[in-house]
């Protein structure tokens, strides 16, 4: 629904050929990464039916990755040399659904199925908007069409398998997974905000505290001669020391 509201924004993002190419290439990487995680899931599940389905899903993701990359490269090749789109707007038009914030080998099947179901649903919503705004680029639109067909299969199998492996609690598992996604979104935001604040503090320190030390460091560097430096004998460097 949210993606629908931003349809004009997506139309603007996708109208630029170079931006489109880079986006497709990035989508290709995300799909391939997601495929690898699904392979991992297929290797770790004790359920043989799920192993087959995860593997099939992984093969689909790999194929999607190849399609995205191929199309992205086609568009890039068709552009005039030197063309450059400076703004990629990655956060406005996110890619597919890599399973990158989930340690697949540590998750029980029901949690993974719920996660995959919601991720596929989310990706399908986004991809259908992207498909709709690509009416002037028929080959790219066709790729999204094809991928959307696969996403329907992925959404269905994850839901039915969730009902199979967790017949009593699958509804609760889905809700739990929805809440976990919100919590994870908060954690991502908190970590990003923390990183920004940490970066800001360190940048302030850099300009306020470092200058005299930088002067001393540069002076010391000038005294160093280029080339070989002797290594002090081993007895002077006991292994208990971290320095």
């Amino acid at each position: 629904m949210i993606f629908e509201m931003f349809r004009p924004v997506h139309r603007w993002i996708w109208c630029d050929a170079e931006r489109r190419a880079h986006k497709l290439l990035r989508f290709g990487e995300t799909e391939t990464d997601g495929g690898r995680d699904l392979v991992r899931a297929s290797e770790t599940t004790p359920d043989s039916l799920l192993r087959r389905l995860y593997l099939e899903h992984a093969i689909d993701e790999h194929r999607h990755g190849v399609m995205f990359r191929r199309r992205g490269n086609e568009i890039l090749r068709s552009l005039a040399p030197g063309s450059n789109s400076s703004f990629q707007a990655d956060w406005l038009a996110p890619s597919g659904h890599g399973v990158d914030d989930l340690r697949v080998d540590e998750e029980p099947d029901e949690a993974l199925l719920a996660f995959l179901h919601l991720s596929e649903k989310n990706a399908a919503d986004r991809f259908s908007v992207y498909r709709d705004v690509l009416e002037n680029d028929i080959p790219t639109r066709a790729i999204f069409e094809e991928i959307l067909r696969d996403e329907v299969f992925h959404m269905n199998y994850t839901l039915t398998q969730l009902a199979r492996v967790s017949p009593q609690r699958h509804g609760r598992t889905l809700w739990y997974e929805r809440l976990r996604r919100i919590w994870k979104s908060y954690l991502r935001m908190a970590a990003a905000l923390g990183a920004v604040m940490g970066g800001f503090i360190l940048t302030v320190q850099y300009f306020v505290i470092l200058p005299p030390f930088a002067w001393l460091a540069k002076r010391a560097e000038r005294r160093e001669s280029p080339g070989w430096a002797p290594v002090s004998p081993q007895p002077n460097r006991p292994l208990q020391r971290q320095y």
Binding site: T203, Y206, F207, L210, P211, F213, A214, L216, A217, K218, E221
Partner: peptide, 9 residues
């Protein structure tokens, strides 16, 4: 980082 100051900011 100190040697490359201020380019290392």
């Amino acid at each position: 980082a100190l040697r490359a100051f201020p380019h290392s900011w």
